[in-house]
């Protein structure tokens, strides 16, 4: 009897923690949006009837998509070069990617506050070059949020993709070239398809990370560039509209889980190794 229960005794405490502190509380948050006194869909109607909140949702999707595309491109280029570098240079490049990754989101967003601020380095550079006559305000714009988010996620993309690219056997590439494929054809027909599953996984991490972020939009976007994360906080802790906050939370959960499920399935189907 005890023997039969051993697996459950070992896995029990961790499962219980997830059940009691995640499944039940998050479930309660989601359920609360359907148990509103004004009817079961009322909170969602209120969300989508508000032009302001629709704008926030759309802005969040837009910023997350732009961030994902830029991060994938920059991450791919950097990872491609990392994968080809000899040992010493490769370690230096990996350190340059790991260091920002392990430095917290607050510190990394703060760096962009110094870069883009009124007395920031970018403004002083433009002033001294005579391109502008007085400091321009770059903070609290969509561009500022995107720049900081790309900065946040490129290291993640580099590390994900350089692992994938390292794994591509050299023979495959040599075979392609010796059969007459031009370098770009090798990239498009061999490297890209083989890297695609890893690329999709990385892109999903970047998109969901941007979509649910709080610190970066708070610091660099402020009230003017409110995103879903900052809207959730504002609803919950400033206006104490808990149903409204729960609705934002529910939309975030649904979008995140839908994207993860659809894209991981796509990544699996696109994996040429699995066929």
């Amino acid at each position: 009897m005890v023997k039969r229960l051993t697996p459950w005794i070992l896995a029990g405490p961790a499962s219980l923690l997830v059940l009691l502190l995640l499944i039940l509380p998050v479930g309660a948050t989601l359920l609360a949006t359907f148990a509103d006194a004004k009817g079961w869909a009322a909170p969602y109607l209120a969300f989508f009837n508000s032009g302001f909140r629709r704008t926030v949702l759309w802005r969040t999707v837009e910023i997350s998509l732009i961030t994902t595309v830029i991060s994938v491109i920059l991450g791919f280029i950097a990872a491609y070069v990392v994968a080809q570098m000899p040992g010493r240079l490769k370690s230096i490049m990996i350190i340059a990617a790991v260091f920002p990754l392990l430095t917290g989101v607050v510190v990394r967003s703060f760096a962009w506050l110094i870069l883009l601020g009124k007395n920031g380095i970018l403004n002083s550079a433009l002033l001294s070059l005579g391109l502008i006559t007085e400091p321009i305000s770059m903070l609290y714009t969509e561009g500022a949020v995107i720049a900081a988010m790309v900065y946040l996620f490129v290291p993640l993309m580099i590390l994900t993709l350089s692992g994938v690219l390292e794994g591509i056997p050299k023979d495959v590439l040599e075979a392609a070239s010796s059969l007459g494929a031009a370098p770009f054809a090798v990239f498009r027909q061999v490297i890209l398809p083989l890297a695609m599953p890893g690329l999709i996984v990385g892109a999903v991490l970047v998109f969901t990370g941007s979509f649910t972020s709080y610190a970066t939009p708070q610091l660099l976007g402020g009230e003017r560039q409110m995103m879903m994360g900052t809207l959730l906080y504002q609803r919950a802790m400033v206006t104490f509209d808990w149903t409204g906050a729960s609705t934002v939370a529910a939309i975030m959960v649904v979008v995140t889980i839908a994207i993860v499920l659809v894209m991981t399935r796509l990544a699996r189907r696109l994996n040429p190794m699995a066929a």
């Binding site: 995640l22 998050v26 979509f211 649910t212 709080y214 906050a245 975030m252 993860v260």
Partner: peptide
């Protein structure tokens, strides 16, 4: 999988 900020709010 669950967004951290949703987890924090729910807790």
């Amino acid at each position: 999988l669950v967004p951290e900020i949703v987890l924090g709010f729910s807790l």
